[in-house]
Write a protein that binds this DNA or RNA. Structure first.
Length: 174
DNA sequence: CCCTAGCGGTGCT
DNA sequence: AGCACCGCTAGGG
């Protein structure tokens, strides 16, 4: 029997994100449609501010934490607290990568190769990139803080515009 | 700048 | 087992 899931939108100055919760925590965070600053993205700013009404109390508490954390992160400030994360959708390797990402502090960066090295798998830089792309909770699990070698921007599944925006908000130069 | 070879994890056949 | 993806990287025009 699969635990019930809840999807709750989050209105931010950069558009409407969507938080998804499993029985054990935040299991996904979706970017607003389109690139930052774009029309479809801007439109989602004023879209329905449907709330956590009807969700279990635990989910409502998690969500309150998620909202604060997301607004902080989008402003380039380190969140005071994160909700419990349910990253069980990932393989062992992916979860290990996401663990390293979560320890990169606001305003700092690593390269894909450095993350691989930190995992004791030098040479797995490319696989690290794939694992970053599979991160279900972007922004809060800061996959945007991983750059290519030589401080080049590298890629970003959610669209490079978001990666640039998040790094600029943290005053990261690249 | 480009191109190439080599790389590791993942998912599909 | 094989194979085709990839948010990579170092090396060489």
């Amino acid at each position: 029997m699969i635990p019930e899931r809840y999807s709750i939108p989050i209105a931010t100055p950069d558009g409407q994100f969507l938080a998804r919760y499993s029985g054990t925590g935040l299991c996904a965070l979706d970017f607003p449609p389109g690139q930052p600053g774009t029309l479809s993205c801007r439109a989602s700013r004023e879209a329905s501010s449907a709330s956590a009404q009807g969700a279990p109390p635990a989910v409502q508490r998690w969500h309150a934490t998620t909202v604060k954390a997301l607004l902080d992160a989008l402003a380039g400030r380190p969140p005071v607290a994160l909700p419990p994360l349910d990253l069980s959708c990932g393989t062992a390797f992916q979860q290990a990568v996401w663990g390293v990402l979560s320890r990169i502090r606001c305003g700092e960066t690593l390269s894909y190769g450095e993350v691989a090295y930190a995992l004791g798998r030098p040479g797995a830089g490319r696989a690290v990139g794939s694992a970053c792309g599979a991160n279900p909770v972007p922004v809060l699990v800061p996959c945007h803080r991983v750059l290519a070698a030589g401080r080049k921007l590298g890629g970003f599944s959610g669209g490079l515009g978001w990666k640039r925006l998040l790094l600029e908000r943290e005053n990261v130069r690249f």
